[in-house]
């Protein structure tokens, strides 16, 4: 009897412990960056001399235009799910700090929107961070975070970094970068030139190609734009992953018809500016050398591009 009671007690304790563990785990996930709401709840409203003022702003893919005007299109083009905005102010003439946390829905798109503007000095916050005078940005997991100061002061800069690290610590887990990055040739790659995107409007922003979507880019395609420098010779390279080989082939045909009609799929073509352009299909991947200083560089890049999983 006493043995039976001990077993029951042990089992009960075990169940309670397991339940508490699951509950704790659920709470932890929810409390640490599971959503913009939980980030808003968890984030300190006081950071040194700066205190949050007013109500937090929340925006979706439609209302984001009300908040950041035309630039909202960039975030929409990366599938923005929501944006949380909070302003911190301090006394003594110090500038306000505007914190914007964008939920991009996936870590790949958080990385993507981070690559839209790669000016600045690298900083150690989140998974990648950049600091320009008065603006700190970073990405972690599916969040892209921007901290903007109306003007830079030493105290404001310190507070912005402190706030950024607080946000980053609340987003507990790191996210993965787009798998298509594995397909880029590595030799001579200018890391800071890499842009990950889906939308033809963003491709045109970084490299104007055409006034129509001649590569059939869209939400279901992943694209990388990158610059190479090998032995003083430069190249601009594009790698696109389509949902299936048929769509990749169709896009290649459309691109050739509109952009390189003379090429006929027979190797690099010399453009009017003396640069070389070429394409290569590998399953559902289309590699395009948009312009290279030499024919051999174009051929090498196409040869080295990988059809990653």
């Amino acid at each position: 009897m006493r043995w039976g009671e001990a077993v029951k007690k042990t089992l009960f304790l075990l169940l309670v412990t397991l339940a508490a563990g699951w509950f704790s785990l659920l709470m932890t996930r929810k409390s640490f960056g599971a959503s913009l709401e939980t980030l808003a709840e968890s984030l300190d409203r006081q950071v040194g001399a700066w205190a949050a003022t007013g109500q937090d702003g929340t925006y979706d893919e439609e209302t984001i235009y009300d908040y950041i005007d035309g630039a909202g299109e960039v975030y929409r083009a990366y599938n923005m799910q929501g944006c949380l905005s909070r302003t911190y102010t301090a006394a003594g003439g110090e500038p306000a700090i505007v914190l914007d946390i964008f939920d991009m829905g996936s870590s790949e798109d958080a990385f993507g929107v981070f690559t839209h503007d790669r000016d600045g000095k690298p900083a150690t916050v989140g998974q990648d961070a950049l600091y320009r005078q008065g603006w700190l940005s970073f990405w972690k997991n599916r969040f892209f975070v921007s901290l903007y100061m109306e003007r830079e002061t030493p105290a404001a800069k310190e507070a912005a970094f402190r706030l950024a690290r607080a946000v980053a610590s609340l987003i507990r887990e790191e996210g993965r970068k787009p798998a298509i990055l594995l397909g880029l040739p590595q030799k001579g790659l200018r890391d800071r030139s890499v842009r990950y995107l889906h939308h033809p409007m963003l491709l045109n922003y970084h490299y104007y190609l055409a006034d129509e979507n001649i590569l059939n880019l869209g939400k279901e395609t992943d694209a990388l734009l990158a610059v190479y420098n090998r032995d003083g010779k430069r190249a601009r390279f594009l790698l696109v992953q389509y949902p299936n080989p048929e769509k990749a082939k169709a896009a290649c045909s459309r691109f050739l018809a509109h952009y390189l009609p003379e090429a006929g799929g027979k190797g690099p073509l010399r453009l009017e500016n003396g640069k070389w352009a070429a394409t290569s299909l590998k399953g559902r991947f289309l590699a395009v050398v948009l312009e290279a200083d030499s024919r051999s560089l174009a051929e090498d890049l196409l040869g080295e591009a990988k059809a990653c999983p």
């Binding site: 964008f102 008065g134 603006w135 100061m149 003007r151």
Partner: peptide, 10 residues
Amino acid sequence: GMGPHHFSRQ
């Protein structure tokens, strides 16, 4: 201009 808001007083 820089950042989502494309503005800095400086």
